[in-house]
Amino acid sequence: MDSIVIEALVRALAVGTPLLLACLGAILNERAGVVNLGVEGLMAVGALAAFAVASRSPDASLWAAVGAAMLAGAALSGLHAVATVTLRANQFVSGLALALIGTGAAGLLGKKFEGLPLFNKVQDWTLGSFTISPFTVAALILAGLLAFWLTATRSGLTLRSVGENPAAADVLGVNVGLTRVLAVLGGGALAGLAGAFLALSYRSSWADNMTNGLGWIAVALVIFVGWRPLRAIAGALFFGFLYYLQFRLQGNSNVPTEVFSAMPFILVLVVLALAGLRGQAGDAPAALGRPYVRGER
């Protein structure tokens, strides 16, 4: 019985790792007042960049692969920053476009990597009777650091003020535009890191649609956890367990496999509806999704 519980926890942590990393990136974006629905695309390009570097040769550096993934995520999210912060375009439309661009580009450019070996794979750490990915440990640490930074540091409070009342922050001398751009780039880097986990730790080969909708679940998870990094750990673990349950029951039941594949997305709709009934949307930053123009109320 203990072994079953440990196996479920380990598998839930593994699947929940990219959800947690991507969710933290989205929280960083939205705490500054910028909605980014393009997480799926950012994860895809991050996974491609990581795999492209790691599969180049047996001597390729895994640090370089991780850095490439974060850089790719930040670079693509830069398009979103320009569109939404500089040009003040609709954040939801820009995010959807980013998701399509990222997944499309990763699918197209990744064709030449299909079937190639992954020379360097991030090895899991052995802790007693189970193993854990370094990415998982990093995600848990990052969640704690982000929570501390947002609540206990001057720069973190500044970012939150931009998401709550950008006009007041502007009056106090805060560069609202720069703060939002940096938040978007940082969030994109974390989404790229989530993609690196998929390419370098969770799988050992490149496949189109590697993200498999995880980015969309991460976007919904932000609302579910009330924009709080520490709650994101529990939320990611919960959805990770649901994915584990999906694979565990698949093939051992007369229920069609499509039902199990749809389970995480159905649950997203359920938890978002419950969050709305509880009034959790009231936890959102006051200026979320609204472009800031100096002098306008």
Rank of each mutant, 00 (worst) to 15 (best):
M1E: 12
I4L: 13
A14W: 03
T17S: 03
L20V: 06
L21V: 14
L24I: 12
G25D: 09
G25V: 10
A26C: 11
I27A: 08
V34I: 14
V35E: 02
L37M: 13
E40W: 04
G41N: 06
A47T: 08
L48D: 06
F51R: 02
V53E: 02
S55L: 07
A60P: 03
L62H: 00
A64E: 12
A64K: 02
V66F: 03
A69G: 09
A74L: 07
A75H: 08
L76W: 07
L76A: 03
L76I: 14
F92L: 15
S94H: 10
L96V: 15
L98W: 08
G102T: 12
G102W: 12
G104W: 06
G104H: 09
G104I: 08
A106W: 06
G107W: 05
L108P: 01
L109W: 13
K111W: 05
K112A: 12
E114N: 07
G115L: 00
L116R: 15
P117L: 11
Q123S: 11
L127T: 08
G128A: 07
T131G: 13
S133C: 11
A138L: 14
A138W: 12
A143G: 06
L146S: 11
L146V: 15
F148M: 10
W149E: 01
L150K: 01
A152Q: 14
T153F: 15
T153E: 09
R154W: 11
G156Y: 10
L159G: 10
S161K: 00
G163H: 00
P166Y: 10
A167H: 12
G173I: 14
V174D: 09
G177L: 02
L178P: 00
A183M: 04
G186W: 00
G187V: 02
A189T: 00
L190D: 11
L193H: 02
L193G: 05
G195F: 08
G195C: 11
S205G: 05
S205R: 12
A207S: 09
I217R: 00
A218D: 05
V219N: 01
A220M: 04
A220T: 02
V225M: 09
L230S: 07
A234W: 09
L237T: 06
F238R: 07
F239D: 04
F239C: 04
Y243F: 15
L245T: 10
Q246K: 14
R248E: 08
G251R: 11
G251H: 06
N252Y: 15
S253I: 02
S253R: 03
N254W: 13
N254L: 15
E258A: 10
F260Y: 15
M263G: 02
M263W: 02
P264K: 10
P264T: 09
L267T: 11
V268Q: 02
V271H: 04
A273T: 14
A275P: 02
G276Q: 07
L277V: 08
Q280A: 15
A281M: 06
A281K: 05
G282P: 00
P285M: 04
A286P: 03
R297L: 10
